[in-house]
Design a binder for these strands. Structure first.
Lengths: 190, 190
DNA sequence: ACCTGAACACCGTTCAAGT
DNA sequence: ACCTGAACACCGTTCAAGT
C-alpha cells in the first residue's frame, strides 16, 4: 500500500486526493463517526475505491494524522530554532500545537490516541518530533525557567490532557487556554 | 424507566443486578466496545431482558457512572470535612478521584464524556459534587496555598485531562501520578 | 490498473411469541 | 410482568463484474 501518490495512475491519484479532502472536511465537521459510504459519496467515488486506497477506516485516519504530524514537527523545529527566549519557545510550541488541533474533532481523537496509530516511517517521525521537543525542553531546563526534571516525553502527555478537554467537554472547549495556563505554571521551577 | 430496583418483581430485580455486575466486569476488562449480546450472556439473560432494563447501551453506561458519581461526591465531602490541612484536602481529593478511575477503561471514557450523560437527578448530584469541590477550593484559596483564581469548575477540567492520558496513552498510563503532580504545581500560587 | 455497488458480517436495537 | 431470541437496521469491509 503506497503511502503517497507516487506511481498511481492519474485518475487514481485524483481520486485519492479527493478522498482525503472529503475525509478531512467530514471528520472536522462531524467527527470520526461519519460512515465510509458517505466519505466515498462526498468524494464522488464508490466505497470500493475508498477501500482500494485505504484498507480500513483507521488507515484513512492514519493518513490524515500523518500529514498533521509533519506540521507538528515543523512547529517544534521552528520553536527550537527561531525563538530565542527559552520559556517563550516552550510555551509557543505547546500553544501552537493546540491551535492546530482546535476545531478538528476527528483529529483531536487521533492525536490523543496517536500512540496506537502506525504508518511507514512513524518511528523516524516520532524521533524527529522528540528531538525537536528535546531541544526546546533542554534549553528551558538549562536556563532554569522550568522544573529541572522536565522531559520531552512530558509534552505529548500534557498535550493529550489539554486536547481531551477540548474534545470531551464541549462546555469547556474554549477553556483549553486556561487549562494550558495551569499546566504551564506547573512546569515553572519551584 | 426506573433508576433503581424499587418496585421490580424479585426475578427482574435479580436480573437487573446480574446485568450491572456483568457490565461492570466486562467494561472494566475490555472497555466500552463489548457487545451487548455478550453482556447479556455473561449475566445469564437474553438481550431482550437487557434492553428492557436499559433502553440503550448508553443508558447502561450511565447507570454505572451514576453509581460511581456517588463515590466521587463522598470523596469530595470527606476531603472537605475530614482533612484539616487545606492543601492536603485538595490534593487528596484529586488523587483519590483518579485512583477510583484507574483500571476501569469503560469508566474512564464515561468520566471524560460525563458532560454528555444524563440521568434523573444529575443536576442535583452535580450540584452536590460542585458544592463539596467548592468548599475544598475556597478553603485552599483563603489559606493562600493555591492560585487565587482557582474555581471549582477547574477540577473536572483538570481531572478529565489526567484521566485522558490514563485512557489513551497505554505507555503513559502509570504516569498519571506525574501528570497530576505537574497539574498540582500549576495550582500553587505564583 | 482501476472502478463500482451489491453482498456479507457484526453489533445495536426491536418485537412477536412464550411463561 | 417479565423473558427470550430471531429479525431488522446500520455501517465497516469484501469481491465479482465491468471499464
Amino acid at each position: 500500500m503506497p503511502t503517497d501518490s507516487t506511481s498511481l495512475r492519474a485518475d487514481a491519484r485524483r481520486n485519492r486526493e479527493r478522498i482525503l479532502a472529503a475525509a478531512g472536511e467530514l471528520f472536522a465537521l462531524r467527527g470520526p463517526a461519519v460512515p465510509m459510504e458517505e466519505i466515498a459519496a462526498h468524494a464522488g467515488v464508490g466505497v470500493g475505491t475508498l477501500y482500494r486506497r485505504f484498507p480500513t477506516k483507521d488507515a484513512l485516519l492514519t493518513a490524515m494524522v500523518r500529514a498533521r504530524f509533519e506540521a507538528f514537527i515543523a512547529i517544534a523545529r521552528e520553536a527550537a530554532d527561531a525563538i530565542a527566549d527559552p520559556l517563550e519557545a516552550l510555551t509557543t510550541l505547546l500553544r501552537r500545537h493546540l491551535e492546530q488541533t482546535e476545531g478538528d474533532t476527528g483529529f483531536q481523537l487521533a492525536v490523543m490516541g496517536s500512540n496506537a496509530l502506525q504508518w511507514e516511517g512513524v518511528d523516524q517521525q516520532r524521533a524527529e518530533l522528540s528531538a525537536a521537543n528535546r531541544r526546546v525542553v533542554d534549553r528551558a531546563v538549562a536556563a532554569g525557567v522550568v522544573r529541572a526534571d522536565l522531559t520531552p516525553d512530558d509534552l505529548p502527555m500534557l498535550l493529550c490532557g489539554v486536547t481531551s478537554t477540548m474534545y470531551f467537554q464541549p462546555g469547556f472547549a474554549p477553556d483549553w487556554r486556561r487549562h494550558l495556563e495551569i499546566v504551564l505554571d506547573g512546569l515553572r521551577p519551584r
